[in-house]
Design a protein around this nucleic acid. Structure first.
Length: 271
DNA sequence: CACGGATCCTGATGGC
DNA sequence: TGCCATCAGGATCCGT
């Protein structure tokens, strides 16, 4: 579910409400992808100084360390003073003086990991190899093109890997490549500079627009307030196999890359 | 090393 | 309460 826009929308929905909250207790449910990395009681008494985002991670700055949250494929976060009783898929819950922060994640591909600091080996392992943030000035077309030149794999796989640029997941990879007119199987190293520039701006445009609209909700995304997004109204190719392209009416094609579905228009998108 | 595939887990869906 | 196969928004690990 959560790509960069969904994670950012989630962050925006509770960052102001949780600031300065003091942690009173922490409860873990079934195991998530990785262990918490400390005793839950170690968080007691710490204060939440802020909430940042790095790629698809939510980063809670605590007085004594860093709490990294990842929503995996099916995770969503709730925060509020009066949450309903925990359900079977609520696997992390943190009660604070300003409300309870909860992670619901049926498939448990998500994680909540504590590190003493951002330079702690545990934090570096999760965050250290992430590419540039696409919605900052650090994401620059020239550098993007040069890095693509070094990758001989399919451009769609390169986007998903997040080593060059973070935050583009399976939906937005198909969408941005459609916007840029590039076929998903095209080798990254063979993309011309003008087309790399198109892809660069498509990534910025699609992700920015998705954040503005409140994140996608093809299945069940909602932010920490339980409000849903509207991206599904705008998908040009994702999940549209066989349907007419919204631009040229050719049937949308699909293929599998790395066990993930890809959607594209073979007329609008060229190798 | 770079790359492709298997893998973790639960739920929804559709064919039979 | 039918059963089984397939698929789902992610990312790591392990072969080759």
């Amino acid at each position: 579910m959560p790509e960069l826009p969904e994670v950012e929308v989630t962050r925006l929905s509770f960052v102001d409400r949780i600031a300065s909250a003091r942690i009173e207790s922490v409860q873990m449910g079934k195991p998530l992808r990785w262990p918490l990395g400390c005793a839950p009681a170690h968080l007691h008494g710490q204060q939440v100084l802020g909430v940042r985002r790095r790629g698809k991670y939510l980063l809670l700055d605590l007085t004594g360390g860093l709490l990294m949250m990842h929503l995996g494929m099916s995770g969503s976060v709730s925060f509020g003073p009066d949450l309903p009783a925990p359900g079977k898929h609520d696997h992390f819950e943190m009660v604070t003086t300003l409300g309870t922060l909860r992670l619901n994640d049926p498939r448990r591909f998500g994680a909540v990991v504590y590190a003493a600091s951002e330079t702690d080996p545990v934090a570096l392992k999760l965050l250290g190899r992430l590419g540039v943030e696409p919605l900052t000035d650090a994401f620059e077309a020239q550098a993007f093109y040069r890095l693509l030149k070094l990758k001989n794999t399919a451009i769609k796989q390169v986007l998903l890997a997040g080593e060059i640029v973070v935050g583009v997941g399976n939906i937005y990879a198909s969408e941005t490549l459609f916007m840029a007119g590039i076929r998903p199987a095209t080798r990254a190293s063979r993309i011309s500079k003008p087309r790399a520039v198109l892809l660069h701006s498509a990534i910025r445009r699609v992700l920015t627009q998705a954040v503005t609209k409140g994140g996608s909700t093809l299945k069940d995304f909602s932010n920490a307030n339980g409000e849903q997004g509207h991206f599904q109204l705008d998908a040009m190719v994702y999940d549209r196999a066989g349907l007419p392209c919204r631009v040229c009416a050719s049937p949308i094609k699909t293929l599998r890359q790395g066990q993930r579905s890809t959607f594209y228009c073979s007329n609008c998108q060229k190798p």
